[in-house]
Every structure is written in structure tokens, then in C-alpha cells.
Design a binder for these strands. Structure first.
Length: 951
RNA sequence: AGGCGGUUAGCUCAGUUGGUUAGAGCGUUACGUUGACAUCGUAGAGGUCACCAGUUCGAAUCUGGUACCGCCUACCA
């Protein structure tokens, strides 16, 4: 082994070996265990969220694989409709100055496939760097042929079940990308805007209750007034209720529109009158439906004002009765320009009452960044209510459990008032909707044109054209758990690995993806009894990883940390370049550069995959957000280094020596029995914490055991045995065997968390430990053996540690160097103390650096000494000339003070009648013991102090 | 506005049915390069568990309220 730990030297080769040897594939034996990776966007690159989730999945997978399960970690990528289309559009624009329309649909999608072949593997290659043991052999892509089959089948069956319909409805329209998007792709942002108060004159000489011949409406979007088809007032409102059924002459347009009574108008808010634009506002659309108002669309797909409006009835049919003329001056205006012009026109006409400042939430497209427009378009929808019902039940009944549980609330609240899902997207990249239209606009759904013709008896003379739209990307990813396993065929894989065991994902896509997977899966996949099958039994929800200041990482803020940079390291200049190069808003570059130079003056040093993963586990607690801490990462790199050096020591002590592999006689020391016992405990703890999804606890258990017990104590305890020329061969052999066997077990327990370093060390030590196997990946995971738990050994070692620490304490307090050999005298020794002394004097002399160790007989006087207590036994270091009297008095004084406080506290507790009468006996007994111990210690310390003072 | 979550050492985080003398990593103080490891060792310091009230013999833990922070949903005509 190399002298120093160098992660890059060991991490490169092992992954390649594992992959080539096919260790990641399901074994085909044992109980099935499966996880489906949330398919990353094929255009994406690995970020901290991926690293976090994928590390967690890998720990579970490696753990179960070692436990002998038939383990599948399904890998794949998502075709990410809009994102991918945009990437390739930008590319052809940059390289050839062409748009996708220059290419045409077919050639453009070919171009995307070409891109995917060349560049679509970025994220999967990065996944390899993390050590992810996914089954590469069966990698899927949501646009591959098999997946398309599943998507098509689902669409057709839902259509046949009456759960998919087409309609002209208001949707969130992205005027830049020219597509509908779902509610979830809309981000509301708070903006400073205005509220315009507009005067609408009443027709036919009518007046309000207050005698005015007009009413005033307030709006944040005055440009939509061109499409107003009514004004709503509250039916109870005394000011206006007499006007219900009367008309208004819509200013600028001159259209006569009715005043309707509707609950939506709140008497308390604004003026109490609401302009109703059913084609451009979701609430107005509802009012329009209730009051029978028509819809007038005034915008183009760009969000510009149309030359002529379009009028529809609520059922989507064309309304030919309405004059759709738009005043000439507004035609073709961009929407925000139109707003200015309309307001100006109102002002000119004397109809602008006032303009208030107003803070409002404005919807933006999360991809395009432009303001989303509610727009009337023809779209396909999934009727979600019936699907949601089953999906809610599955979580209510515990068939699916969220970890942590509070996310179930979030899920329920969304599912309870779920809206129909708009699944059509006006894109070219994606699963094209399997629907055809004839010239009359009648729609036929089928697997292909031939099938449609045959099923519907359409001759060759009937012209058919396929729907131009594609399906929402989440429609296909909703089928991920079963679509990847060969459905609609009833494959062996599907039977074996579905339902999957656990889904690991972030809370931000519970609605986007998790809920939809549950709905889709439960509708299509049934068990042998016809009961809907869940896609997964647990949903493990992770929090967001934020930067060191708790700020969400984003490119525009320039605070993104690349997991690979933490693995490989990156120098400052490269990091600055990475964060400031290729920015959408170059004006931020300077600020980002400054901040980066301040936070990472030395860049980022390499830490290796194992340290990164371990840090992620140690922070993986309750699904809440995490503020990334680079220091913690360094701490874990040090932990790797510690393990490396411990292995180095073990090898030095065992290589080429008899380690008792052959079953020959060995003698186990107290230290051996103790560390073996502790090993069983940590094995049990880790097993429990893995079952409870508490990777932070599991990693803490291992850290404690390996560093604070195995390295800090056991390795030290092994030295006096192995360096003792007089020790028996059985004894040395026993120690060597324990050293190497425990290390070998440590490697196996740790492997799911730190795959690389454990494999590397394991390969070195397996022959010494008498273990066989090609890889630690497939070695058996250690299971705690109750019979090896040795309470006697544990308490003896606790005593031993107390003894040694006591001596070290005196050394530190008295400024005695660690190497000065000390004579130690023991007083007030019990039988037990003497036994322990007898058995462990060599450990004590060696670890505490003693020159002599003697127990005082009851009638012997001790010289003046510094004192430490181990239980009731007094450990005395004779003062002679080497102890500073004042210092010792001060030290004892501190002890006495502490003990006095303790005694007082316990006495207080025990003298409380109510405590004694109502607390459980065990608790009282415990308190009594504590009191007695504290009193004894106090007495001894006081005596000692008095003796020294009297000197 | 409603819902959920958070507030524990200087920083990042644990704390599992109330019995704790509240823990870890990093940082910090002092000392120390003896033969696994200075990416280290040894010994320390550091917290009235946001605040108030209640339940209880006993509260970081349970209940109610307050403050601040975060997220989600809705509204803002």
C-alpha cells in the first residue's frame, strides 16, 4: 500500500473493474430489492442534489446486495422535452445560424438524436465517478423504442377509459417557447406593479345606487379589457345589485357587455366591481362559466394583440354573433406596449380614475423566464380526480410511506384539490400524441395510422393527419417504475422487481413526479388479485443542499458547487472561470468572482469520492435543507486518511506473519475480546439505522467505532502485545488475528458508504483474514453475533480507559511530559481492581508510560501524591519533587467544586418526597448510586486536598 | 391569509416512546514530531436547548401562546 492516502490513485481503477465484471447486475438469487433512479435530465450535469440522492441510493443498494438480495438499481435518463429542444436549437443557431424551422420537424429531431449520441452521456459518466452501482446493462432512455410503446399504450388506454380528453381551455401559455406548460412549471414572483382604476360607463342611462352613471373597475392588467365580456358585482351589494342584468358600454371598444351577479366579486375589496375577461384570466374563466359569458381571445401565441379577436362560447364553439373588431391603434402591439397604450387611451378619454402602486405575484415560466399568459388553446388533458383517489388511498393506508412522514401532508393537500393535467406540449421533441384528425376535425386515437383506419373503417380516400403535439415529459417519467421493466409486456423483470422498494428524491418534485407516478402505476399495474400495485413502498425525501451561507445554489448567484470539484479539486482560477464564464447576466460576474475568491482563496483541494459520500451521509438526517460545510468534508477526508493509516499499521504488523487463519490455537486478550464485542454492537446499530433510513446515525456509529475505539484504543492496546518479546505466540497470534479480522469486518460494514477505500484495503488484507472472494461488493455484510458481546470485557476496558485517562490528566495538569515514566501507587483497591491490575498491568504500564505500579496494602501509608479516582480506587502519582503543590491544590479544588455540585443535585432530587414516591424504582436506584459515587469521590478529594495543604 | 417545518456550543448538525451530568465534526486553548497517522496525538474551554406560560416528582423532548426564519398553497379583480 502507498504510504499516504491518495483517493485519486485508488478510485479510478476500481469502478472500471466492477463495471467490467458485471457486479452491478442483479444476481438472480435471493429476495428482490430494487430502486429506480430518478432519471436525470439528459442535458444535465451532476449537481449536489444528484450527488446526495445517488449516494444515498448507492448505500442502500450496496447494503442490500451484500446482504444477499437480488438487487436492481435501474438507471436511465429523461428526454426532457423543452430543455433538450432548447439546447439543440441554441447549438444549430450558434453553429449554422439556423432555426429548427429551417430544418423542419423530422430533420430537427434527427439532429437531437445526433446530439444525444454525442453529448447525452455527460451525466451518466459523472454518475460513475460517484461509484454508483447501477445496472448499466439495462440503462433506459424515456425516448427509446420500448418506452415509447409504454407511453403510447398508456395514452390509448386512458383515452379509452375516458380519462383523457381534448378541449379548448385556458392554459398557462409560454409566449416565448410557444407551448403550454403545467402549473408546476410556473414560478410566481413578487413584483412591484400598479393597480389601474378604470371607469366603465353604464348603458341606457342607468345609474348606480349612489346615482353615478358609471362604475369603476380595478385591474392589474388593463390590456385585457379588450377581451372583457362582462362586469361582475356581488349579488348582495346594495350599490350595484340593481344593475345586474343591465349593460355597460366597454370603453375604447364600444362593445355592450352585461353586468352579472357573482360571488367572486367581493364587496370589501377594491371597488366591488370586477371586469371579467374569461379568455385571459383563470378566475374570470370560472365566473364566465357560471354566468354564461362568452370568451374573447385578444392575443396571438406571441402574446401580442391580435388584429381581430376570436370569440368562443364556453363549450369552445365559435361565437359568430360578437363583433370581434379590435381598435386599429392597438392591433399587433406587444402585450406590455399594449398596456401602456390602453392606459393612455383611457386617460385621454377621461376614464382613468387613478393609478395605485401595487405589489403582486407575477407568473413566470421556469424555463423561458418570461411572463406566462393564460391563453385559450386546444389541449389534451388527463382527468386526474379518479386517479388521485387511489393514489391518496395508498398513502393513507400505508402502502406507500413517506420518510420523513410530514411530507405526506404536502402530498395529501395537493392531491385533494388536484387539477386536470394538461399533457400536450407544442414541441417537436417528445412522444408525439397518438391521435389523428380527419378533415372535419374528428379525432381518432390509436397506435398508428393504419390501426386507426382499420378500427374506424376509414378508407384510403379519407385524409388523416397526426396531432402535432407531444406529451409532457412528466407523462412519460410517470411510467418510469414499470416502463423501464418492459411493460406493457408482462416481463419477468417486471414481476421480479415491481413494486420497487424505495424512491429517493427531493421534496420539490413530489407533485411533478412522485404523485403522478403513483397515479399512473396504480391505474395500470395490478397484482395477481387485481389490486392496484404501488410503484414503491417508501419515498425517502431529501432536503436541498444550500451553500455555506444557507443560500440556494444557482448559476446566476454563482455559488454552485460541483461535486466533482470536491472529489478532484479545482484551483481558484478555474473555479472563478467556471462560475463566471458563459453567464446569462455577465454584469454579475465581478461580484461572483469577488465572492468566490473570498470563500475559496485556495480553490478546492481534492477530497475523493469516499469523503464526499461520507459527508453526504452524515448530513442526511430528517429531510430538511442542509447548509453545505466544506470543513465537514475535510473532516471526513481525514477520516479516510485515518482508516488508511490504520490499515497500514495492521499490514505492517500482520503481513507475512501467522494471523491464525488456519484455526490454530490463539489466546485472546482482554482488548481482543472487548473490540470484538464492540464490533457486534456497531454492526447492530448500523443495521438498525439502515432499516430506519438514518444514514447520518449509521455513519456516526461507524466513525465513532473506527476512530475512537478501534484506532484510538485497540491499535494502541495491540502494541504492548506485539512488541513484547516475552508474550506467547498464541497471544500474539490472537492479537494479529483480531487486528486483521476486525479491520476486515470494518471494511465490509463501511463499504456501502465508502466503496473505494474499503475495496482497496480489503483486497490487501483478505488473505491475512482468511477470507476469499473477488470483490468486497459481493462479500457478505457483517451481522452482529450476540454471543460475542462480552460485558465483562467491556467494563474492564472502561476501567482501563479511566485509569489511563486519569494518569494522562495528571500529566497534563502537572505539565509532566507524555514520556516521563511515572511511579504509580494505588490505594483503596477492591478485589475487582486487583484482578484487573493483575490481568492488564502490561497494558497500563505501556499506555500510561509507567515505570512502576504498586497497590498499597491497607495498613500502608502513601506518600504525598496527585490523585485521580477510578471508581473508588485512588490512582496516586507520588509528588516527590516533581509536582507543583499549588497546581495540584487548584486542580483538586476544581474537582471538589464539581463534585459538590453533583452531590447537591442528587441529594435535592432524592430528598424530594414526590420524586421518591412516584419515580420508577430503577430511576431512583440509579440516582442513589450516582449520589453515593459522588459522595465517595468528594470525600476522597477533600481528604487529599487537606493532606496536600497540610504539607 | 392558510398549512407545514425550523430555532440546541463560534460554525455545520445529531439528540429514537420525557429520567442527561445535552453530544459529534470543524473551529478554539495548552502541550507534544516515541517506530500507523501532524490529513496526527494528549488534556481542556465552550450551551439558563429562541422566549413565555402550563402539565409532571422530573421537560431540549409533551401542551398552549409569542417572536424570528424557511418552504408550500392560495389571494391580491
Amino acid at each position: 500500500m502507498e504510504k499516504t492516502y491518495n483517493p485519486s490513485a485508488i478510485e479510478g481503477t476500481w469502478y472500471k473493474t466492477w463495471e467490467e465484471k458485471g457486479y452491478f447486475a442483479p444476481s438472480g438469487e435471493g429476495t428482490p430489492y430494487s430502486i429506480m433512479i430518478p432519471p436525470p435530465n439528459v442535458t444535465g450535469s451532476l449537481h449536489m442534489g444528484h450527488a446526495f440522492q445517488d449516494s444515498i441510493m448507492d448505500a442502500f443498494i450496496r447494503y442490500k446486495r451484500m446482504k444477499g438480495f437480488n438487487t436492481l438499481w435501474q438507471v436511465g435518463t429523461d428526454h426532457a422535452g423543452i430543455a433538450t429542444q432548447m439546447v439543440v436549437e441554441r447549438k444549430i443557431m450558434a453553429e449554422e445560424g439556423k432555426t429548427r424551422h429551417d430544418y423542419g420537424r423530422e430533420a430537427f429531431t434527427d439532429k437531437i438524436w445526433e446530439w444525444k449520441e454525442e453529448s447525452g452521456g455527460t451525466i451518466t459518466s459523472q454518475l460513475r465517478r460517484l461509484g454508483a452501482s447501477v445496472d448499466w446493462e439495462t440503462e433506459r432512455f424515456t425516448m427509446d423504442d420500448g418506452f415509447y410503446k409504454a407511453v403510447q399504450e398508456v395514452f390509448i388506454r386512458l383515452y379509452e377509459d375516458g380519462l383523457i380528453y381534448r378541449g379548448k381551455r385556458l392554459v398557462n401559455w409560454d409566449p416565448k417557447l410557444h407551448t403550454a406548460i403545467s402549473d408546476l412549471e410556473v414560478e410566481s414572483q413578487e413584483k412591484q406593479g400598479n393597480m389601474w382604476y378604470l371607469r366603465y360607463p353604464l348603458a341606457d342611462g342607468e345609474t348606480t345606487g349612489e346615482g353615478k352613471d358609471y362604475i369603476v373597475v380595478a385591474t392589474t392588467r388593463p390590456e385585457t379589457m379588450l377581451g372583457d365580456t362582462g362586469v361582475a358585482v356581488n349579488p348582495e351589494d346594495p350599490r350595484y345589485k340593481n344593475l345586474i342584468g343591465k349593460d355597460i358600454i366597454l370603453p375604447l371598444v364600444g362593445r355592450r357587455i352585461p353586468i352579472v351577479g357573482d360571488e367572486h366579486a367581493d364587496m370589501e375589496k377594491g371597488t366591488g366591481c370586477v371586469k371579467i375577461t374569461p379568455a385571459h384570466d383563470f378566475n374570470d374563466n370560472e365566473v364566465g362559466k357560471r354566468c354564461g359569458l362568452p370568451m374573447i381571445n385578444i392575443m396571438t401565441l406571441n402574446g401580442d394583440i391580435r388584429d381581430q379577436a376570436e370569440a368562443f362560447n364556453m363549450d369552445g364553439s365559435v361565437n359568430a354573433d360578437i363583433d370581434t373588431t379590435i381598435p386599429e391603434q392597438f392591433r399587433g402591439l406587444e402585450r406590455f406596449e399594449a398596456r401602456k397604450q390602453i392606459v393612455a387611451a383611457f386617460e385621454e378619454a377621461g376614464l382613468l380614475v387613478k393609478i395605485d402602486d401595487h405589489t403582486l405575484m407575477v407568473p413566470y415560466g421556469d424555463r423561458s423566464g418570461v411572463v406566462i399568459e393564460p391563453l385559450l388553446t386546444d389541449q389534451w388533458f388527463v382527468r386526474t380526480a379518479p386517479l388521485a383517489k387511489e393514489a391518496i388511498r395508498a398513502v393513507e393506508d400505508g402502502d406507500i410511506q413517506f420518510v420523513p412522514k410530514q411530507y405526506e401532508n404536502m402530498y395529501f393537500s395537493w392531491m385533494r384539490d388536484i387539477q386536470d393535467w394538461c399533457i400536450s406540449r407544442q414541441l417537436w421533441w417528445g412522444h408525439r400524441i397518438p391521435a389523428w384528425y380527419d378533415n372535419s376535425g374528428k379525432v381518432y386515437v390509436g397506435r398508428n395510422e393504419a390501426e386507426v383506419r382499420e378500427k374506424n373503417g376509414l378508407g384510403a380516400d379519407v385524409e388523416l393527419r397526426q396531432d402535432n403535439d407531444v406529451l409532457d415529459t412528466w407523462f412519460s417519467s410517470g411510467l418510469w417504475t414499470f416502463g423501464t421493466q418492459g411493460w406493457p409486456e408482462q416481463t419477468e423483470r417486471l414481476k421480479t422487481f415491481h413494486p420497487t422498494d424505495v424512491l429517493v428524491t427531493g421534496f420539490d418534485i413530489i407533485f411533478f413526479w412522485v404523485a403522478r407516478m403513483i397515479m399512473m402505476t396504480m391505474h395500470f399495474i395490478k397484482d395477481e388479485n387485481g389490486k392496484p400495485q404501488v410503484p414503491f413502498k417508501y419515498v425517502y425525501v431529501t432536503g436541498l443542499i444550500r451553500d455555506e451561507n444557507g443560500v440556494k445554489m444557482s448559476k446566476t448567484k454563482g455559488n454552485v458547487l460541483d461535486p466533482l470539484d470536491m472529489i478532484d479539486g479545482i484551483d481558484l482560477e478555474d473555479l472563478v472561470e467556471k462560475r463566471t464564464g458563459n453567464m446569462m447576466q455577465p454584469q454579475l460576474a465581478q461580484k461572483i468572482e469577488k465572492q468566490t475568491r473570498k470563500t475559496y482563496p485556495e480553490g478546492i483541494t481534492p477530497h475523493g469520492t469516499d469523503a464526499l459520500r461520507y459527508t453526504l451521509y452524515s448530513l442526511a438526517s430528517t429531510g430538511r435543507d442542509i447548509n453545505w460545510d466544506m470543513k465537514r468534508l475535510e473532516g471526513n477526508r481525514n477520516f479516510c486518511n485515518k482508516i488508511w493509516n490504520a490499515a497500514n499499521y495492521v499490514l505492517m504488523m500482520t503481513e507475512g506473519k501467522d494471523c491464525g487463519q488456519g484455526g490454530v490455537d490463539v489466546e485472546l486478550t482482554l482488548a481482543d475480546k472487548w473490540i470484538i464485542s464492540e464490533l457486534q454492537r456497531v454492526e447492530a446499530q448500523v443495521a438498525k439505522n439502515m432499516d430506519d433510513f438514518r444514514l447520518d446515525h449509521a455513519s456516526q456509529n461507524l466513525y465513532d467505532f473506527i476512530w475512537n475505539e478501534y484506532c484510538a484504543w485497540y491499535l494502541e492496546l495491540s502494541k504492548p502485545v506485539l512488541w513484547d518479546e516475552n508474550a506467547s505466540e498464541e497471544r500474539k497470534r490472537g492479537t494479529r488475528r483480531t487486528l486483521v479480522r476486525v479491520l476486515e469486518s470494518i471494511c465490509r460494514i463501511l463499504h456501502p458508504f465508502m466503496p473505494y477505500i474499503t475495496e482497496e484495503i480489503w483486497q490487501q488484507i483478505k488473505p491475512l483474514a482468511g477470507v476469499e472472494g473477488d470483490t468486497i461488493m459481493l462479500a457478505a455484510y457483517p451481522v452482529a453475533d450476540e454471543s460475542k458481546i462480552d460485558a465483562q470485557a467491556e467494563s474492564d476496558i472502561t476501567w482501563l480507559k479511566g485509569f489511563i485517562t486519569g494518569i494522562r490528566n495528571i500529566r497534563a495538569e502537572m505539565n509532566l511530559g507524555p514520556n516521563k515514566p511515572l511511579d504509580v501507587i494505588l490505594r483503596n483497591t477492591s478485589e475487582e481492581d486487583l484482578r484487573r491490575l493483575e490481568e492488564n498491568s502490561s497494558f497500563l504500564i505501556s499506555l500510561a508510560k509507567l515505570s512502576n505500579l504498586t497497590a498499597l496494602k491497607s495498613d500502608e501509608e502513601a506518600p504525598m501524591s496527585a490523585t485521580q479516582l477510578v471508581g473508588e480506587m485512588e490512582v496516586l502519582v507520588p509528588m516527590a519533587d516533581l509536582i507543583d503543590k499549588d497546581k495540584e491544590i487548584a486542580r483538586l479544588g476544581k474537582e471538589v467544586e464539581k463534585l459538590q455540585k453533583e452531590v447537591a443535585r442528587f441529594e435535592g432530587k432524592l430528598s424530594n418526597e414526590k420524586f421518591v414516591s412516584s419515580a420508577p424504582a430503577a430511576v431512583i436506584e440509579k440516582e442513589r448510586t450516582k449520589l453515593a459515587d459522588a459522595q465517595t469521590a468528594l470525600k476522597k478529594m477533600e481528604e487529599q486536598m487537606a493532606a496536600i495543604k497540610a504539607l
